[in-house]
Design a protein around this nucleic acid. Sequence first.
DNA 1: TTGTATGCGTTATCAA
DNA 2: TTGATAACGCATACAA
Lengths: 330, 330
Amino acid sequence: MSQKVTIATVAAYAQVSRQTVSNVINSPDIVRPETRERVRAAIAALGYRANQAARQMRTGRSRLLAVRIEPAGDGVNGSVADRFLHGLTDAAGAAGYRVMLYTARDDNDEIATYDDLLGAYDLDGFVLTGTGHGDPRTSWLARRDVPFVTFGRPWDTPDLHLWVDVDGADGVAQATRRLLATGHRRIGFIGWPAGSAVGDDRRSGWESTLAEVGLDPHGLARETVDGIAEGEATARELLDLDDPPTALVCVSDSLALGALRADPDPAGSLAVIGFDDTPVAAAMGLTSVSQPLRQAAAGCVDLMVAMLDGPPVPPTPLLLHPSLVLRQTA
Amino acid sequence: MSQKVTIATVAAYAQVSRQTVSNVINSPDIVRPETRERVRAAIAALGYRANQAARQMRTGRSRLLAVRIEPAGDGVNGSVADRFLHGLTDAAGAAGYRVMLYTARDDNDEIATYDDLLGAYDLDGFVLTGTGHGDPRTSWLARRDVPFVTFGRPWDTPDLHLWVDVDGADGVAQATRRLLATGHRRIGFIGWPAGSAVGDDRRSGWESTLAEVGLDPHGLARETVDGIAEGEATARELLDLDDPPTALVCVSDSLALGALRADPDPAGSLAVIGFDDTPVAAAMGLTSVSQPLRQAAAGCVDLMVAMLDGPPVPPTPLLLHPSLVLRQTA
DNA sequence: TTGTATGCGTTATCAA
DNA sequence: TTGATAACGCATACAA
C-alpha cells in the first residue's frame, strides 16, 4: 500500500499550512482562488482523502447512516427491501454519506442496537422501514433527539418525526379505475387482515373508488395473510360466490400470483392486479402497482441530510404516488 | 442525550487510571480480578462504549467490512443476495464487525470505490460476491494487500485469495439422482449459456450423474439466459422433441418456474427441479436445490476475521454443500 | 499491576 | 487570507 497521505502531506506538497488545506476542503470560499487551486491540484495529485475517523473525532459527525436489514420473508415482496436498500445506498453515497447495516430480532433488540451504534460509531441517523402502531423505536429515538426518518407514515403520532411514504390508497384506486375502464363491474379485493396500517390504507382505495361510481363493494373483499397459496385459496372463495367477481385487486403480488392460479378459465379471463411490481410479477405478466422505491429512498436521504446538515427551514414529509404497470392480466 | 461517557469517566467512577480501564477492555488478564470487576461494573453502570473513531485512529483498524449491494435483477433469485446480506450482517455483528454497503455501476467504478472506502474509512476488508473470469477487482485488491474474501470460487486464479462457495455441481447431481430414483430416465437440463463459471459447474453435476448410470445426456440440454419466460420457451423446445424428457433440472428457480408452465399436462406430470430454493419456489411447490446462504455468509466472516485478527495458521477456503428440498414438482 | 506521557489526523480558535 | 496551537478519545511504550 502506498504511504499514507494525510493533510500534512498535501500541505507540504502545496506549500501551505495544514489549516489552509482543511479550509479548501471545508470552506473553499475563504481561501484565495490561486491557493485553492494549488491545494486542489495537490489533493488530486496525491489522491488524498480526508480520514473520516479523525474528522469524526473533531466534529462528532460520522457521515454514517444505519438501516436494518430484515430476513427476506416472502421473497416475492422481498425484493422491495432490496431495491429500497440499493436506492438508499446510492442516494446516501451521492450526498457524502455511507450506509451501515444492522439486524435485530425484535424491537427491543433493535433499540439496544441503536444504543450501541450511537455510542460506538457515532451514527448520524437511522432510516427505519415499516413502522407499526405504537412503535417503541420511534419514541426511543425521538426522546433522545437522534435524527431519523421512516419509510412509512407514522400511523398514530403524526408529527413525531419525518417520513417518506407511498400512497397505497391511490395505487389501489388506480388499479380499480383501470378495471372499471375495461368494463368490469364486479371487482373483488384480497387484502391483509384489518389492523395492518399499510393494508388498511390500500384497501380504502378500492372501497372509495367503487363508491365513487356507485358500486357496492359489500361481500367482495376477503382478508388473508400474505402468500401465494393463501391468494389462491382466497380467490377461489370469491370465485365460488353466486355472483363472482370478474376482476380482483390484490394488496400484494404474492396474493395476486395466487389469485391467477385460481382462475378456472385456462385462457385467463379473470383480471388480476397486484401490488409492488416485483420482478416476479414482471416475469409472469402480472399487472401491478409500482412503488417509486428509488425516489422513496432518495427522499429519505434528502430528509436526513436536511436535518443533519441543518437548514433553518424544517423539511416536510414526502408522500409519493405509485403508478400502475399494465401487463397481460388486466 | 446523556453526557458523553469516555474512558476517563469510567476511570473516575471506578477509581482507577484510564489505562487500567483500557487494559480491562483489551487485555483483561493482566488486570487484578477485583480491579477488573470493579471496572466492568463501572462500564456497565455508565453504559460506556469504546469510541470506534478514536480507537481506529490509534489502531488503524475500523472493524468495518464492506459489501456491494446490487440492484435486484430477476427478483426470483434476487432474494439470494438479500439472504446472504442478512447472514453476513448477523455474523459480522457477532464477531464485533459492522457491514457497510456500497453500490457500483461496473468493475472500474467499484475499484474507485475501494480506493475511497479504504482511504476515508479505513475499511478492514471487503466481501465480494460472484467473481467472474479474469476479475479486475480481485487483482486490484490482492495487489494492495487489502484483506478480502469472495463468495464464489476464483475460477482462474486458484490461490489469489480466500473464498467460500457452494458446490453447484453437487446440488445438481443431487437433483438428478432424485429424478433417477423416482424412475425418470430421460432427464433434461436447462442451463445458462456456456462460459458462466457458476452455470458450467452446475451443469457438470447433471452430466456426470447421468454418465455414472450409463445414460446419454446428448441432446437433452439447452442454454438460455435467465428468466421465467425463457424457461418456458426452452422447456417447450425440449418437450417438442421426438423423445421428450420426462423431467427437467434447471440451473435456476426462474427457469424452473418457466419450465413448469410449459407442461402440457394440467395435472403436472412433468418433473421439474430448480436451483436456489427461493421463497417463490417454496410458495409454488417447486422442488429446488437449497444453498446454505447463512453458513456461506458466516464462513465469509470467519475467514475475514481469521485474516484480520490474524492467527499464525492461514485459513483455508470453504466449499459448502447444498441440499435438495423436496416439494410437489419432483 | 497501575499510572503517565505521547500521538493518531482532523478542525476550531485565535493570532499574525 | 493564512498559519500555529489545542483538543477530540483511545491505546501503546515506558516508568513507577
